[in-house]
């Protein structure tokens, strides 16, 4: 067979970089944390009401970091307002929907937190329902915004929304467990450790589902078209091996899973370590998803 070598090409930069990967991670943690907060006031599980405020405030604080990343990432920072103007809004653009969701979600969770503070069950539930829907839509958007690019081999998969929702759920719980542990140390209001153990159990179910989704994605890339196969070999197992294989799969999923199914889960340190590793591991996924998905094409 005739061999060929590419000897000249112009190079291109990655269009979305670290700030977007951090933003995806922060949104995931915020929405995941908020969904735990809603278990008490929206879904009626009484024992979760004790952590609802901490969880919703965690969601708000983390979300406050998001606009700073997004706005300063724009070429024209002041024009972020265009995203919210009806005459500019574009129904087929995923980012139009995303910016709308993020705007209303941030307002909704602040209002929800207020009703939780004033102990108003009716409005907390009503606003909570809206916030949960917005949280799910917002988290879906962060995945879909890259999925709907047919030229991106690694991102263009229908598994995307599930990967992002699961990642958000487990990283949200992970960060929340750490926040509650700090709260127990610093504040007089204590959270029962059994509740944290129960959240860790939910996190473990999420880990298993995330591993299953990653296996499906692995199969697709391994048996996919040329782009997906090379994407798997060169990007996931090559340049982005650390965030993909080590950070996400081994450190972020497998080690916490073994901690949570082993006797180590009976120790506080075990659960806290698992929570930390999961939160960090999901960031690894955001890194390979955003930058790895664009990697091959920067040369094309």
């Amino acid at each position: 067979m005739e061999e060929s070598v590419i000897t000249y090409n112009v190079f291109h930069h990655v269009a979305w970089g670290t700030s977007i990967s951090v933003y995806f991670w922060l949104v995931g943690v915020s929405t995941g944390s908020f969904i735990i907060s809603s278990l008490g006031w929206v879904f009626g599980i009484e024992r979760y009401k004790s952590i609802a405020l901490t969880a919703s405030i965690t969601a708000v604080v983390i979300l406050l970091l998001v606009p700073s990343l997004l706005i300063w990432d724009l070429g024209q920072p002041l024009r972020f307002l265009y995203l919210l103007l009806p005459s500019y809004w574009h129904a087929t653009g995923p980012m139009s929907w995303g910016s709308t969701f993020i705007f209303f979600y941030s307002i909704a969770i602040i209002v929800y937190s207020y009703f939780v503070i004033v102990n108003n069950p009716f409005w907390a539930k009503m606003i909570g329902i809206i916030s949960v829907v917005l949280a799910i839509l917002l988290e879906l958007y962060t995945g879909v915004v890259m999925q709907l690019n047919p030229g991106r081999f690694l991102n263009n998969t229908a598994l995307t929304p599930f990967l992002f929702l699961t990642g958000a759920f487990i990283s949200g719980i992970g960060v929340l467990i750490l926040v509650l542990w700090i709260q127990n140390m610093l504040v007089a209001i204590k959270v029962e450790w059994t509740l944290i153990e129960e959240m860790a159990k939910y996190m473990m179910f999420g880990l298993v589902f995330d591993l299953f989704l990653l296996f499906l994605d692995f199969m697709q890339t391994l048996y996919g078209d040329h782009g997906q196969v090379i994407g798997h070999e060169v990007v996931l197992m090559g340049v982005f091996r650390f965030p993909y294989l080590w950070l996400e799969i081994i450190i972020g999923l497998l080690i916490p899973f073994f901690i949570l199914v082993s006797p180590l889960k009976k120790f506080k340190a075990g659960i806290l370590l698992a929570a930390l590793l999961v939160a960090v591991g999901v960031y690894g996924m955001r890194v390979w998803w955003v930058m790895g998905g664009q990697y091959l094409q920067t040369f094309y």
């Binding site: 070598v5 590419i6 930069h13 670290t18 700030s19 090379i230 994407g231 060169v234």
Partner: peptide
């Protein structure tokens, strides 16, 4: 993908130099 895997060694080095020394506005080059 073929364009990427079949780059000449020189081009591969140039590509890495480009990413190392000319950070884009998105700061995502590895």
């Amino acid at each position: 993908p073929h364009s990427y895997t079949n780059r000449s060694t020189q081009l591969k080095d140039e590509f890495n130099d480009f990413k190392r020394n000319h950070k884009g506005d998105a700061f995502g080059d590895i």
